[in-house]
Nucleic acid binder design. Sequence first.
DNA 1: TCGCCTTGTTAGCGAGCGTTAACGAACGGG
DNA 2: CCCGTTCGTTAACGCTCGCTAACAAGGCGA
Lengths: 208, 208
Amino acid sequence: MLVPVNQLVYNPRMGDPVPVQGPARRGRRTEILEAAAVLFAQRGFHGVAIDDIGRAIGVSGPALYRHFRGKEAVLAQMLLDISERLRSEGERRVAAAEGPEQALAALIDGHIAFALGRPALITVHDRELGNVPEPERRQIRRLQRRYVEQWVAVLSRLRPEAGEARLRAAVHAALGLLNSTPHSAGGLPGEEMRAMLAAMARAALLAG
Amino acid sequence: MLVPVNQLVYNPRMGDPVPVQGPARRGRRTEILEAAAVLFAQRGFHGVAIDDIGRAIGVSGPALYRHFRGKEAVLAQMLLDISERLRSEGERRVAAAEGPEQALAALIDGHIAFALGRPALITVHDRELGNVPEPERRQIRRLQRRYVEQWVAVLSRLRPEAGEARLRAAVHAALGLLNSTPHSAGGLPGEEMRAMLAAMARAALLAG
DNA sequence: TCGCCTTGTTAGCGAGCGTTAACGAACGGG
DNA sequence: CCCGTTCGTTAACGCTCGCTAACAAGGCGA
Protein backbone atom coordinates (compact mmCIF):
# COMPACT_ATOMS: atom_id res chain seq x y z
CA MET A 1 0.00 0.00 0.00
CA LEU A 2 1.41 3.34 -1.03
CA VAL A 3 1.00 6.27 1.27
CA PRO A 4 1.88 9.93 0.71
CA VAL A 5 5.03 10.93 2.52
CA ASN A 6 3.32 13.54 4.63
CA GLN A 7 1.24 10.84 6.23
CA LEU A 8 4.32 9.23 7.71
CA VAL A 9 5.27 9.66 11.30
CA TYR A 10 8.93 10.40 11.83
CA ASN A 11 10.41 8.64 14.77
CA PRO A 12 14.02 7.46 14.47
CA ARG A 13 13.79 5.45 17.67
CA MET A 14 10.90 3.36 16.44
CA GLY A 15 12.41 2.05 13.25
CA ASP A 16 10.76 2.67 9.91
CA PRO A 17 8.12 5.34 9.56
CA VAL A 18 4.61 4.11 9.98
CA PRO A 19 1.46 5.32 8.25
CA VAL A 20 -0.82 7.39 10.38
CA GLN A 21 -3.99 5.50 11.04
CA GLY A 22 -6.89 7.83 11.45
CA PRO A 23 -9.19 10.17 9.70
CA ALA A 24 -7.42 10.65 6.41
CA ARG A 25 -5.16 13.56 7.10
CA ARG A 26 -7.16 16.59 7.98
CA GLY A 27 -5.23 19.29 9.72
CA ARG A 28 -3.26 18.22 12.72
CA ARG A 29 -5.05 20.81 14.82
CA THR A 30 -8.32 19.07 14.18
CA GLU A 31 -6.77 15.70 14.84
CA ILE A 32 -5.45 16.91 18.18
CA LEU A 33 -8.77 18.45 19.12
CA GLU A 34 -10.67 15.25 18.43
CA ALA A 35 -8.27 12.99 20.25
CA ALA A 36 -8.12 15.35 23.21
CA ALA A 37 -11.91 15.53 23.36
CA VAL A 38 -12.20 11.79 23.78
CA LEU A 39 -9.50 11.71 26.44
CA PHE A 40 -10.87 14.71 28.34
CA ALA A 41 -14.32 13.15 28.32
CA GLN A 42 -13.00 9.87 29.66
CA ARG A 43 -10.62 11.05 32.37
CA GLY A 44 -11.18 14.77 32.84
CA PHE A 45 -8.87 17.61 31.85
CA HIS A 46 -6.40 17.14 34.69
CA GLY A 47 -6.39 13.39 34.21
CA VAL A 48 -4.94 13.63 30.70
CA ALA A 49 -1.25 14.32 30.06
CA ILE A 50 0.21 16.02 27.03
CA ASP A 51 1.93 12.77 26.15
CA ASP A 52 -1.40 10.94 26.18
CA ILE A 53 -2.78 13.28 23.55
CA GLY A 54 0.30 12.91 21.39
CA ARG A 55 0.28 9.14 21.69
CA ALA A 56 -3.38 9.01 20.66
CA ILE A 57 -2.54 10.50 17.27
CA GLY A 58 0.80 8.80 16.78
CA VAL A 59 3.21 11.61 17.66
CA SER A 60 5.12 12.44 20.79
CA GLY A 61 3.89 14.79 23.49
CA PRO A 62 5.61 18.10 22.83
CA ALA A 63 4.63 18.03 19.14
CA LEU A 64 1.40 19.56 20.40
CA TYR A 65 3.16 22.86 20.96
CA ARG A 66 3.58 23.29 17.19
CA HIS A 67 -0.19 23.75 16.99
CA PHE A 68 -1.35 25.09 20.35
CA ARG A 69 0.07 27.41 22.97
CA GLY A 70 -0.45 24.77 25.63
CA LYS A 71 -2.83 22.25 27.10
CA GLU A 72 -5.30 24.87 28.27
CA ALA A 73 -5.37 26.36 24.79
CA VAL A 74 -6.47 23.00 23.41
CA LEU A 75 -9.39 22.92 25.83
CA ALA A 76 -10.28 26.53 25.14
CA GLN A 77 -10.33 26.03 21.38
CA MET A 78 -12.39 22.90 21.83
CA LEU A 79 -15.06 24.60 23.91
CA LEU A 80 -15.11 27.64 21.63
CA ASP A 81 -15.72 25.40 18.61
CA ILE A 82 -18.54 23.52 20.31
CA SER A 83 -20.27 26.58 21.72
CA GLU A 84 -20.07 28.44 18.44
CA ARG A 85 -21.31 25.46 16.52
CA LEU A 86 -24.27 24.93 18.82
CA ARG A 87 -25.15 28.59 18.68
CA SER A 88 -24.92 28.98 14.91
CA GLU A 89 -26.72 25.74 14.19
CA GLY A 90 -29.44 26.75 16.60
CA GLU A 91 -29.81 30.12 14.91
CA ARG A 92 -29.97 28.49 11.50
CA ARG A 93 -32.59 26.00 12.60
CA VAL A 94 -34.78 28.54 14.35
CA ALA A 95 -34.66 30.83 11.32
CA ALA A 96 -35.63 27.98 8.99
CA ALA A 97 -38.60 26.92 11.09
CA GLU A 98 -42.10 28.24 10.71
CA GLY A 99 -43.73 28.80 14.04
CA PRO A 100 -42.50 28.11 17.55
CA GLU A 101 -43.55 24.46 17.63
CA GLN A 102 -41.36 23.66 14.64
CA ALA A 103 -38.57 25.82 16.02
CA LEU A 104 -38.58 23.95 19.30
CA ALA A 105 -38.56 20.60 17.53
CA ALA A 106 -35.68 21.79 15.38
CA LEU A 107 -33.67 22.89 18.38
CA ILE A 108 -34.27 19.60 20.12
CA ASP A 109 -33.39 17.55 17.06
CA GLY A 110 -30.24 19.55 16.47
CA HIS A 111 -29.04 19.13 20.01
CA ILE A 112 -29.77 15.42 19.99
CA ALA A 113 -27.91 14.96 16.72
CA PHE A 114 -24.91 16.66 18.22
CA ALA A 115 -25.10 14.77 21.52
CA LEU A 116 -25.42 11.40 19.82
CA GLY A 117 -22.93 12.19 17.06
CA ARG A 118 -20.16 13.69 19.18
CA PRO A 119 -20.66 12.43 22.70
CA ALA A 120 -17.15 13.32 23.84
CA LEU A 121 -17.55 16.94 22.81
CA ILE A 122 -20.86 17.29 24.62
CA THR A 123 -19.41 15.76 27.75
CA VAL A 124 -16.41 18.06 27.80
CA HIS A 125 -18.64 20.99 26.97
CA ASP A 126 -20.64 20.81 30.14
CA ARG A 127 -17.92 19.66 32.52
CA GLU A 128 -14.69 21.45 31.78
CA LEU A 129 -15.55 25.11 31.44
CA GLY A 130 -13.98 25.71 34.82
CA ASN A 131 -10.55 24.78 33.47
CA VAL A 132 -10.57 27.30 30.63
CA PRO A 133 -8.40 30.38 31.31
CA GLU A 134 -10.12 33.67 31.75
CA PRO A 135 -10.11 35.53 28.46
CA GLU A 136 -11.69 32.68 26.50
CA ARG A 137 -13.89 31.58 29.39
CA ARG A 138 -16.01 34.70 29.07
CA GLN A 139 -16.42 34.26 25.35
CA ILE A 140 -17.54 30.66 25.76
CA ARG A 141 -20.02 31.66 28.44
CA ARG A 142 -21.39 34.34 26.12
CA LEU A 143 -21.92 31.81 23.35
CA GLN A 144 -23.57 29.36 25.72
CA ARG A 145 -25.84 32.08 27.04
CA ARG A 146 -26.85 33.06 23.54
CA TYR A 147 -27.70 29.46 22.76
CA VAL A 148 -29.84 29.10 25.85
CA GLU A 149 -31.58 32.37 25.04
CA GLN A 150 -32.61 30.97 21.67
CA TRP A 151 -34.36 28.15 23.48
CA VAL A 152 -35.93 30.54 25.96
CA ALA A 153 -37.19 32.82 23.21
CA VAL A 154 -38.83 29.97 21.35
CA LEU A 155 -40.29 28.53 24.50
CA SER A 156 -41.72 31.82 25.70
CA ARG A 157 -43.74 32.05 22.50
CA LEU A 158 -45.25 28.68 23.33
CA ARG A 159 -45.78 29.47 27.00
CA PRO A 160 -46.22 33.25 27.29
CA GLU A 161 -47.56 32.93 30.82
CA ALA A 162 -44.30 31.59 32.23
CA GLY A 163 -41.59 33.94 33.50
CA GLU A 164 -38.23 34.03 31.80
CA ALA A 165 -36.32 32.84 34.86
CA ARG A 166 -38.47 29.75 35.03
CA LEU A 167 -38.10 29.05 31.34
CA ARG A 168 -34.35 29.44 31.59
CA ALA A 169 -34.21 26.92 34.41
CA ALA A 170 -36.41 24.56 32.44
CA VAL A 171 -34.15 24.85 29.41
CA HIS A 172 -31.08 24.09 31.51
CA ALA A 173 -32.79 21.02 32.90
CA ALA A 174 -33.81 19.82 29.45
CA LEU A 175 -30.28 20.31 28.18
CA GLY A 176 -29.09 18.30 31.15
CA LEU A 177 -31.39 15.52 30.06
CA LEU A 178 -30.06 15.58 26.50
CA ASN A 179 -26.44 15.95 27.56
CA SER A 180 -26.64 12.92 29.80
CA THR A 181 -26.99 10.55 26.86
CA PRO A 182 -23.26 9.96 26.40
CA HIS A 183 -23.01 8.46 29.88
CA SER A 184 -25.98 6.18 29.53
CA ALA A 185 -25.16 5.31 25.94
CA GLY A 186 -25.90 1.93 24.48
CA GLY A 187 -28.86 -0.30 25.09
CA LEU A 188 -31.13 1.27 22.55
CA PRO A 189 -30.76 1.46 18.74
CA GLY A 190 -29.83 4.96 17.57
CA GLU A 191 -33.06 5.93 15.90
CA GLU A 192 -35.24 4.79 18.78
CA MET A 193 -32.99 6.63 21.22
CA ARG A 194 -33.22 9.78 19.14
CA ALA A 195 -36.99 9.70 19.01
CA MET A 196 -37.34 8.90 22.68
CA LEU A 197 -35.05 11.72 23.76
CA ALA A 198 -36.95 14.15 21.56
CA ALA A 199 -40.26 13.12 23.10
CA MET A 200 -38.88 13.37 26.61
CA ALA A 201 -37.29 16.76 26.10
CA ARG A 202 -40.41 18.17 24.49
CA ALA A 203 -42.69 16.86 27.21
CA ALA A 204 -40.39 18.14 29.94
CA LEU A 205 -40.13 21.61 28.44
CA LEU A 206 -43.86 21.97 28.01
CA ALA A 207 -44.54 20.66 31.50
CA GLY A 208 -41.90 22.63 33.40
CA MET B 1 -15.46 32.60 73.81
CA LEU B 2 -14.57 29.28 75.37
CA VAL B 3 -14.03 26.30 73.17
CA PRO B 4 -13.36 22.67 74.10
CA VAL B 5 -9.73 21.78 73.73
CA ASN B 6 -10.37 19.07 71.19
CA GLN B 7 -11.72 21.68 68.82
CA LEU B 8 -8.34 23.40 68.64
CA VAL B 9 -6.03 22.96 65.72
CA TYR B 10 -2.48 22.33 66.71
CA ASN B 11 0.00 24.13 64.55
CA PRO B 12 3.17 25.47 66.20
CA ARG B 13 4.16 27.43 63.11
CA MET B 14 0.95 29.40 63.05
CA GLY B 15 1.06 30.80 66.54
CA ASP B 16 -1.80 30.18 68.93
CA PRO B 17 -4.27 27.39 68.37
CA VAL B 18 -7.37 28.45 66.54
CA PRO B 19 -10.91 27.14 66.95
CA VAL B 20 -12.12 24.96 64.12
CA GLN B 21 -14.87 26.71 62.27
CA GLY B 22 -17.25 24.23 60.81
CA PRO B 23 -19.99 21.79 61.50
CA ALA B 24 -19.69 21.36 65.23
CA ARG B 25 -17.24 18.52 65.56
CA ARG B 26 -18.62 15.46 63.92
CA GLY B 27 -16.06 12.88 63.05
CA ARG B 28 -13.12 14.02 61.04
CA ARG B 29 -13.88 11.40 58.43
CA THR B 30 -17.20 13.04 57.69
CA GLU B 31 -15.63 16.46 57.68
CA ILE B 32 -13.04 15.32 55.14
CA LEU B 33 -15.67 13.67 52.97
CA GLU B 34 -17.79 16.80 52.84
CA ALA B 35 -14.93 19.17 52.10
CA ALA B 36 -13.57 16.83 49.45
CA ALA B 37 -16.99 16.54 47.83
CA VAL B 38 -17.19 20.27 47.30
CA LEU B 39 -13.68 20.45 45.92
CA PHE B 40 -14.08 17.41 43.65
CA ALA B 41 -17.31 18.86 42.30
CA GLN B 42 -15.67 22.19 41.56
CA ARG B 43 -12.39 21.11 40.03
CA GLY B 44 -12.58 17.38 39.41
CA PHE B 45 -10.76 14.62 41.25
CA HIS B 46 -7.39 15.18 39.61
CA GLY B 47 -7.68 18.93 40.02
CA VAL B 48 -7.74 18.72 43.80
CA ALA B 49 -4.60 18.14 45.86
CA ILE B 50 -4.39 16.47 49.23
CA ASP B 51 -3.26 19.77 50.69
CA ASP B 52 -6.38 21.48 49.34
CA ILE B 53 -8.61 19.08 51.23
CA GLY B 54 -6.64 19.54 54.41
CA ARG B 55 -6.66 23.31 54.10
CA ALA B 56 -10.43 23.31 53.61
CA ILE B 57 -10.95 21.83 57.06
CA GLY B 58 -8.13 23.64 58.82
CA VAL B 59 -5.48 20.91 58.98
CA SER B 60 -2.47 20.15 56.85
CA GLY B 61 -2.46 17.76 53.93
CA PRO B 62 -1.04 14.50 55.26
CA ALA B 63 -3.42 14.56 58.23
CA LEU B 64 -5.81 12.90 55.83
CA TYR B 65 -3.85 9.67 56.07
CA ARG B 66 -4.96 9.25 59.68
CA HIS B 67 -8.48 8.65 58.38
CA PHE B 68 -8.17 7.28 54.85
CA ARG B 69 -5.76 5.02 53.02
CA GLY B 70 -5.27 7.65 50.34
CA LYS B 71 -6.94 10.10 48.04
CA GLU B 72 -8.67 7.43 46.00
CA ALA B 73 -10.07 5.90 49.19
CA VAL B 74 -11.74 9.23 49.98
CA LEU B 75 -13.45 9.24 46.62
CA ALA B 76 -14.44 5.60 46.92
CA GLN B 77 -15.99 6.09 50.35
CA MET B 78 -17.81 9.15 49.10
CA LEU B 79 -19.38 7.38 46.13
CA LEU B 80 -20.23 4.34 48.24
CA ASP B 81 -22.06 6.52 50.74
CA ILE B 82 -24.02 8.33 48.06
CA SER B 83 -24.97 5.24 46.11
CA GLU B 84 -26.02 3.38 49.22
CA ARG B 85 -28.02 6.31 50.47
CA LEU B 86 -29.84 6.76 47.18
CA ARG B 87 -30.60 3.06 46.99
CA SER B 88 -31.86 2.66 50.54
CA GLU B 89 -33.88 5.86 50.47
CA GLY B 90 -35.41 4.76 47.19
CA GLU B 91 -36.33 1.41 48.63
CA ARG B 92 -37.86 3.00 51.68
CA ARG B 93 -39.90 5.42 49.61
CA VAL B 94 -41.15 2.83 47.17
CA ALA B 95 -42.16 0.54 50.01
CA ALA B 96 -44.06 3.35 51.74
CA ALA B 97 -45.99 4.34 48.63
CA GLU B 98 -49.31 2.91 47.62
CA GLY B 99 -49.48 2.30 43.93
CA PRO B 100 -46.99 3.05 41.17
CA GLU B 101 -48.04 6.67 40.68
CA GLN B 102 -47.21 7.51 44.27
CA ALA B 103 -44.05 5.45 44.12
CA LEU B 104 -42.83 7.33 41.08
CA ALA B 105 -43.59 10.66 42.70
CA ALA B 106 -41.76 9.55 45.83
CA LEU B 107 -38.69 8.52 43.87
CA ILE B 108 -38.66 11.82 42.01
CA ASP B 109 -39.12 13.86 45.16
CA GLY B 110 -36.40 11.97 46.94
CA HIS B 111 -33.92 12.42 44.17
CA ILE B 112 -34.70 16.12 43.89
CA ALA B 113 -34.30 16.61 47.61
CA PHE B 114 -30.90 15.00 47.43
CA ALA B 115 -29.83 16.90 44.32
CA LEU B 116 -30.89 20.25 45.73
CA GLY B 117 -29.68 19.51 49.25
CA ARG B 118 -26.27 18.10 48.41
CA PRO B 119 -25.37 19.38 44.96
CA ALA B 120 -21.68 18.61 45.32
CA LEU B 121 -22.33 14.95 46.11
CA ILE B 122 -24.64 14.53 43.15
CA THR B 123 -22.11 16.11 40.83
CA VAL B 124 -19.27 13.91 41.99
CA HIS B 125 -21.56 10.91 41.91
CA ASP B 126 -22.15 11.02 38.18
CA ARG B 127 -18.75 12.27 37.08
CA GLU B 128 -16.02 10.58 39.03
CA LEU B 129 -16.83 6.90 39.05
CA GLY B 130 -14.03 6.38 36.56
CA ASN B 131 -11.44 7.41 39.13
CA VAL B 132 -12.50 4.87 41.76
CA PRO B 133 -10.16 1.86 42.00
CA GLU B 134 -11.48 -1.50 40.96
CA PRO B 135 -12.71 -3.37 43.99
CA GLU B 136 -15.01 -0.57 45.16
CA ARG B 137 -15.92 0.47 41.64
CA ARG B 138 -17.89 -2.69 41.11
CA GLN B 139 -19.76 -2.30 44.35
CA ILE B 140 -20.74 1.27 43.50
CA ARG B 141 -21.92 0.20 40.09
CA ARG B 142 -24.00 -2.51 41.66
CA LEU B 143 -25.69 -0.04 44.00
CA GLN B 144 -26.32 2.39 41.15
CA ARG B 145 -27.80 -0.37 39.06
CA ARG B 146 -30.09 -1.43 41.89
CA TYR B 147 -31.29 2.16 42.25
CA VAL B 148 -32.05 2.46 38.56
CA GLU B 149 -33.86 -0.85 38.63
CA GLN B 150 -36.18 0.50 41.32
CA TRP B 151 -37.16 3.27 38.95
CA VAL B 152 -37.55 0.85 36.06
CA ALA B 153 -39.73 -1.48 38.10
CA VAL B 154 -42.07 1.31 39.15
CA LEU B 155 -42.20 2.74 35.66
CA SER B 156 -42.92 -0.58 34.03
CA ARG B 157 -46.04 -0.90 36.16
CA LEU B 158 -47.19 2.45 34.78
CA ARG B 159 -46.24 1.64 31.20
CA PRO B 160 -46.41 -2.13 30.79
CA GLU B 161 -46.25 -1.81 27.01
CA ALA B 162 -42.72 -0.38 26.98
CA GLY B 163 -39.69 -2.64 26.92
CA GLU B 164 -37.26 -2.65 29.81
CA ALA B 165 -34.33 -1.38 27.75
CA ARG B 166 -36.31 1.64 26.72
CA LEU B 167 -37.46 2.32 30.26
CA ARG B 168 -33.92 2.03 31.50
CA ALA B 169 -32.75 4.57 28.96
CA ALA B 170 -35.62 6.86 29.90
CA VAL B 171 -34.72 6.62 33.57
CA HIS B 172 -31.10 7.48 32.83
CA ALA B 173 -32.21 10.51 30.87
CA ALA B 174 -34.53 11.65 33.63
CA LEU B 175 -31.79 11.26 36.20
CA GLY B 176 -29.59 13.32 33.91
CA LEU B 177 -32.22 16.03 34.01
CA LEU B 178 -32.38 15.98 37.79
CA ASN B 179 -28.64 15.73 38.25
CA SER B 180 -28.02 18.77 36.08
CA THR B 181 -29.57 21.11 38.63
CA PRO B 182 -26.36 21.81 40.53
CA HIS B 183 -24.79 23.34 37.41
CA SER B 184 -27.75 25.53 36.53
CA ALA B 185 -28.43 26.37 40.16
CA GLY B 186 -29.80 29.72 41.24
CA GLY B 187 -32.30 31.89 39.47
CA LEU B 188 -35.36 30.25 40.93
CA PRO B 189 -36.51 30.04 44.56
CA GLY B 190 -36.02 26.59 46.00
CA GLU B 191 -39.61 25.50 46.29
CA GLU B 192 -40.51 26.59 42.77
CA MET B 193 -37.43 24.83 41.43
CA ARG B 194 -38.36 21.67 43.27
CA ALA B 195 -41.89 21.63 41.90
CA MET B 196 -40.77 22.43 38.37
CA LEU B 197 -38.18 19.67 38.30
CA ALA B 198 -40.71 17.18 39.60
CA ALA B 199 -43.17 18.13 36.87
CA MET B 200 -40.51 17.94 34.18
CA ALA B 201 -39.16 14.59 35.31
CA ARG B 202 -42.62 13.09 35.56
CA ALA B 203 -43.67 14.35 32.15
CA ALA B 204 -40.44 13.16 30.56
CA LEU B 205 -40.69 9.70 32.06
CA LEU B 206 -44.29 9.22 30.98
CA ALA B 207 -43.58 10.53 27.49
CA GLY B 208 -40.31 8.64 26.81
C1' DT C 1 21.00 24.25 -5.19
C1' DC C 2 20.62 26.85 -1.26
C1' DG C 3 18.24 28.06 2.61
C1' DC C 4 13.97 28.91 5.10
C1' DC C 5 9.69 27.15 7.01
C1' DT C 6 7.13 23.60 8.90
C1' DT C 7 6.70 19.95 11.90
C1' DG C 8 8.51 16.63 14.01
C1' DT C 9 12.16 14.60 17.53
C1' DT C 10 14.77 13.85 22.42
C1' DA C 11 16.57 15.86 26.72
C1' DG C 12 15.90 18.24 30.67
C1' DC C 13 14.16 21.76 33.98
C1' DG C 14 11.20 23.23 37.67
C1' DA C 15 7.05 22.66 39.94
C1' DG C 16 3.56 20.02 42.08
C1' DC C 17 1.71 15.77 43.43
C1' DG C 18 0.65 11.54 46.55
C1' DT C 19 2.68 9.27 49.98
C1' DT C 20 5.75 7.88 53.90
C1' DA C 21 8.66 8.78 57.85
C1' DA C 22 9.68 10.65 62.12
C1' DC C 23 8.19 13.20 65.65
C1' DG C 24 5.07 15.77 69.27
C1' DA C 25 0.96 17.34 72.05
C1' DA C 26 -3.30 16.06 74.45
C1' DC C 27 -6.05 12.76 76.58
C1' DG C 28 -7.62 8.67 79.24
C1' DG C 29 -7.12 4.31 81.79
C1' DG C 30 -4.11 1.44 84.73
C1' DC D 1 1.61 9.47 87.37
C1' DC D 2 2.87 7.39 83.48
C1' DC D 3 2.27 5.50 79.15
C1' DG D 4 -0.15 4.08 75.05
C1' DT D 5 -3.36 5.76 71.62
C1' DT D 6 -5.04 9.21 68.75
C1' DC D 7 -4.41 12.77 65.70
C1' DG D 8 -2.00 16.18 64.47
C1' DT D 9 2.72 18.26 62.63
C1' DT D 10 7.02 19.06 59.19
C1' DA D 11 10.43 17.05 56.01
C1' DA D 12 11.54 14.58 52.28
C1' DC D 13 11.31 11.06 48.56
C1' DG D 14 10.08 9.69 44.04
C1' DC D 15 7.34 10.37 40.32
C1' DT D 16 4.74 12.81 36.85
C1' DC D 17 3.54 16.81 34.59
C1' DG D 18 3.63 21.03 31.47
C1' DC D 19 6.71 23.28 29.01
C1' DT D 20 11.17 24.84 26.74
C1' DA D 21 15.44 24.10 24.33
C1' DA D 22 18.11 22.35 20.84
C1' DC D 23 18.25 19.87 16.96
C1' DA D 24 16.74 17.26 12.45
C1' DA D 25 14.27 15.89 8.17
C1' DG D 26 11.42 17.03 4.20
C1' DG D 27 9.21 20.44 1.04
C1' DC D 28 9.46 24.35 -1.64
C1' DG D 29 10.36 28.92 -3.55
C1' DA D 30 14.10 32.05 -5.24
